[in-house]
């Protein structure tokens, strides 16, 4: 299935992290970066972060809010929430399959 995130190339994974980070409310770049680092344990570089933000914004999956001083918060759009939900459901099925197979192999 083609989704708006499937064409994001090397930014697909960071884009998914960003969408998850924004799913509980708007955040600016630094807050997204620290949130993603807490979630995944891996830092998100500034070039990767803004490369992914630009792609998500252009595809209408997130939108920029009015800037707060020099920091601009972003929030997930309806399309972004739908896309994220579909991506997570797909991953959930994938994880379940993997765990089931691992369990079968261990026996």
């Amino acid at each position: 299935m083609t989704t708006p995130t499937s064409e994001l190339g090397r930014f697909a994974e960071p884009s998914l992290y960003i969408l998850v980070s924004l799913s509980d409310g708007p955040k600016h770049g630094y807050a997204i970066m620290t949130d993603v680092e807490e979630m995944t344990g891996a830092p998100l570089g500034p070039g990767t972060l803004y490369g992914a933000l630009a792609r998500l914004e252009r595809r209408g999956l997130i939108e920029a809010l009015p800037p707060d001083d020099r920091r601009r918060p972003y929030r997930i759009t309806g399309l972004g929430a739908t896309t994220l939900s579909a991506q997570l459901a797909h991953l959930e099925g994938f994880v379940r399959t993997g765990l089931t197979r691992l369990g079968g192999a261990a026996r």
Binding site: G45, P46, P67, R72
Partner: peptide, 16 residues
């Protein structure tokens, strides 16, 4: 401006 502000909060490492 946003990235500049971000880098002011978290100075860029070599990896960054």
């Amino acid at each position: 401006a946003e990235v500049d502000e971000l880098l002011a909060e978290r100075p860029a490492s070599l990896r960054d």
